[in-house]
Design a protein around this nucleic acid. Structure first.
Lengths: 316, 316
DNA sequence: TAAAAATACTCCATAGGTATTTTAT
DNA sequence: ATAAAATACCTATGGAGTATTTTTA
């Protein structure tokens, strides 16, 4: 009685509404005229209103049929598009990609990587959020993100996650412009080590934190941590305010805050690793994104980020 | 093989995606588990990709299934709404109403009638256009409009059309403000009749044209037609420019053009009829509109249009 | 009277049911 | 051991076919 109306019935309505001729519409539907007549009658009975005006001079739409036509066209068209959605999603070309990232990578190659990914994956809905390592690990647990860039070595992420070294860059020293060290071309470890340090909290970026502390200890110094801050922006602001010096990834030098100068100190041997992390096994769209980042990483020449940190010498 | 996928299959997918449990989903679909298993398998085969991940700890959506879910929800929801569209259209509560009108009625009760009709027929798409009688009659022929307001007596429209006297209003005299007649309280027919006349062309509004000419002839005068114009706005502008005087429907006095004054001359006995016209037999939405206008015509008190024409006496 | 829609009936493809097995924890 | 999905097989509804009648311009 009030069984739901199937797409078959709407397709028959659509063809008849377009042809306005039972015989031709039936032929286009790969059927004969009598069953089409019956099907349309049944549809009209279930809707409780006629959809076509039959007369000897042809078939015409009633007002109800005319009102239905555009809606049915949309419905049938939408239904025809569903298989493509499924196939595209299975191939990683459609769907949703929830991506988290630490702020530092956003000053580096991430925007370009995203732009390139969008070009070839227009039907993937990208959902971006900035988050630190600990927040991202929790988000993986609760299935709130699909992938993320973290300040961490690829080998150090939990085993349930896949990881790939997305970016390895030297750490450079951020100094207040007014600071005496800012004018020297040759820095000495004891002078640098004596300065108060602005740094990430250890839980946010353990590998970066540990690397900096190890370098200080290797030179026999103990760092004085003046302030901890989570955002790159905040760290640079604190340096600008004269709170101390900071070791930051080289790409962050793009943040040209007045009152801050950067010094590249290759001799310090300090570097920072950003990994792309994802839940294993990777669903197709995540796999596509990982592959894209791997390819983009070596494709376009790396040096396109403006070097804004003057190089200085470092002596023990 | 590539037979189209029916709504039945999408409904089954939808219920399973919501329950993530074959047994319960089957029960909600008023069927048993085995045919649902088969149906989902067949759907996955036809799409060429699995939609569900079956494991002992439950059923989960694959990326393809997850991408499909919102689209299928929309599709099934849209399909469920179609019967309502058909029924509403059959009752005249949905669909499209293409309405033409002469400019004069737009200064009168038409806006209020349309506002009221919209309130009770929110799902009717109103398509309005201004057009003169001759254009409207041609548009009825080519099925470009469903109904129209014309400056014509209801009895004078072609027999294939239904008609209803929507508005009967006196004609008032529009005079240039600087004109000597504008200062007098008593006008004489010979003086009025001697003035050059601005009027509609006869094919645009035959009944109005003929009524004016008959009045002139009854008083023994022959009107001097200075200018013909189609738009009310244009006629008033020509009067303002001193081209002559014009007889216009009373509601047009709402057009307060500087340099024009209006004089109501009841003794002239000149009136103008606006009819609502439609193709017979009226389709439901047109019938609803006609009924609405009939009711609105006597419902709200008529005098709400500001009287802006001073009454003057007219002597032979 | 002729073209097209409606009716009458026949058939079979397939959606769904029942019984049972397999699977994974 | 058990809950749930998969498989095997059966049934019957209803969608589509052929033949024919009715309708109306």
């Amino acid at each position: 009685m009030n069984a739901p109306i199937e797409l078959r019935a709407w397709r028959q309505f659509l063809h008849l509404a377009e042809d306005l001729h039972f015989g031709r519409a039936a032929a286009r539907l790969h059927m004969t005229q009598p069953p089409l007549t019956l099907a349309i009658q049944a549809l009209e009975r279930r809707l409780g209103t006629p959809l076509f005006e039959r007369s000897r001079r042809g078939v015409a739409l009633t007002p109800a049929g005319a009102a239905l036509l555009p809606a049915v066209q949309r419905l049938v068209h939408d239904a025809e598009g569903l298989p493509r959605i499924a196939q595209a999603a299975a191939a990683g070309q459609a769907g949703r990609l929830r991506l988290a990232f630490v702020s530092s990578i956003a000053y580096g190659p991430l925007p370009e990587w995203l732009r390139g990914f969008r070009l070839t994956h227009a039907d993937v809905a990208l959902q971006l959020r900035e988050a630190t390592l600990d927040v991202q690990l929790a988000a993986f647990d609760s299935d709130d993100i699909d992938a993320g860039f973290v300040l961490h070595a690829p080998g150090a992420v939990p085993p349930a996650l896949g990881a790939w070294l997305a970016l390895r860059e030297p750490l450079v020293l951020a100094l207040p412009q007014a600071h005496p060290l800012a004018t020297k071309r040759v820095l000495r470890w004891p002078d640098v080590a004596a300065e108060p340090l602005v740094i990430f909290p250890r839980e946010i970026a353990p590998s970066l934190f540990d690397a900096v502390l190890a370098a200080y200890r290797a030179s026999g110094a103990t760092p004085r941590i003046a302030q901890e801050a989570i955002q790159m922006q905040t760290i640079v602001n604190l340096v600008s305010a004269g709170m101390g010096v900071a070791w930051v990834p080289e790409t962050v030098t793009q943040l040209q805050r007045p009152g801050v100068v950067y010094r590249a100190l290759p001799a310090a041997g300090l570097a920072c690793e950003t990994s792309l992390v994802w839940r294993e096994p990777a669903v197709p769209v995540v796999q596509r994104f990982v592959d894209h980042v791997r390819r983009a990483q070596r494709g376009p020449a790396r040096g396109h980020v403006a070097r804004t940190a003057r190089t200085a010498q470092l002596r023990p």
